[in-house]
């Protein structure tokens, strides 16, 4: 019976490893479509977040393989031990305890320090540079208000900056957030009712919207296309309905789109009577 369990755990570990190894090539990976590298984030910061993820994945993979090899060996050795052989007890080994305390601590400390830069870029400062090396300014594009169960979005008029309180010439849309591609854009995230979360999987941007708070979220988009924009916090029975579209478009298209929406929004309905 001992050999069965030894084999069982060895095979389980091997299957887990193989499935994990092939999953990127099977498409069981991060969401993206239409890019050369499958599963690659579509924003500068998203790629940095991915790098961190891959670093941690490597660390845990090595750990996983090492511990499972050790586990398999111990189980097999225990199952096949001869009655006359003497057993070695590791319990209470001072040097082993020192090793498995210090090694993980060093790894954790390394991760904690190493990720600070990405964290700062995500929460504290801008992170992309212009072609001349100067850091790019963060542009406030819109105020995004989550409510049960939709996203209501307010933009400043063309050529104006976003003000905290609505202006008479503001532009409104619903479930469709437009941003200029390549710019470091920020949105002011708020909620009308309960807690929601702004989530654009392909950009790796996720931020809770908390009642009573105005939360700035900034990101850039590398590709001109439509992205999925979701609510990532179970907010009520209609949570699944909070699917929206983030449209990344060139600055000219963005401005032209603003003009179009503004014209529709200030339509006075007057039509010249037909002759």
């Amino acid at each position: 019976m001992g050999r069965f369990w030894a084999l069982f755990f060895i095979v389980t570990a091997v299957i887990t490893f193989v499935v994990s190894w092939i999953s990127p090539s099977m498409g069981w990976w991060f969401p993206t479509d239409g890019v050369a590298v499958f599963g690659m984030a579509q924003s500068t910061l998203g790629r940095k977040i991915d790098d961190l993820f891959y670093l941690i994945l490597w660390i845990v993979s090595v750990t996983f393989v090492a511990t499972n090899v050790a586990l398999g060996y111990a189980l097999w050795r225990g199952a096949t031990i001869k009655p006359e052989e003497k057993v070695w007890f590791s319990h209470g080994s001072h040097s082993l305890e020192v090793i498995w305390t210090i090694v993980p601590s060093v790894i954790l400390l390394f991760i904690a320090l190493y990720q600070l830069d990405v964290w700062a870029a995500y929460r504290v400062r801008g992170f992309i540079k212009d072609s001349d090396g100067k850091p790019k300014q963060i542009v406030a594009v819109a105020e995004v208000t989550a409510r049960q169960f939709e996203w209501r979005i307010r933009y400043p008029a063309r050529g104006k900056t976003l003000k905290p309180i609505p202006q008479a010439d503001d532009i409104y849309t619903v479930n469709e957030l437009h941003v200029p591609t390549g710019d470091l854009v920020s949105i002011t995230l708020r909620t009308d009712d309960v807690q929601h979360a702004f989530f654009v999987p392909e950009l790796r941007v996720k931020q809770d919207a908390v009642p009573g708070k105005l939360i700035p979220v900034w990101f850039d988009t590398l590709v001109t296309k439509d992205y999925e924009m979701l609510c990532a916090e179970l907010c009520g029975w209609g949570h699944y309905k909070m699917k929206a579209k983030l449209v990344a478009q060139s600055t000219e298209d963005f401005e032209a789109w603003k003009d179009k929406v503004s014209e529709e929004q200030f339509d006075d309905g007057y039509r010249k009577p037909a002759e």
């Binding site: 049960q148 939709e150 619903v174 479930n175 469709e176 209609g238 309905k241 929206a244 579209k245």
Partner: peptide, 14 residues
Amino acid sequence: KYGIPGTYMPSFLL
């Protein structure tokens, strides 16, 4: 398409 703001009628834009 655009819902009714201020009510529970959400937008079904997509």
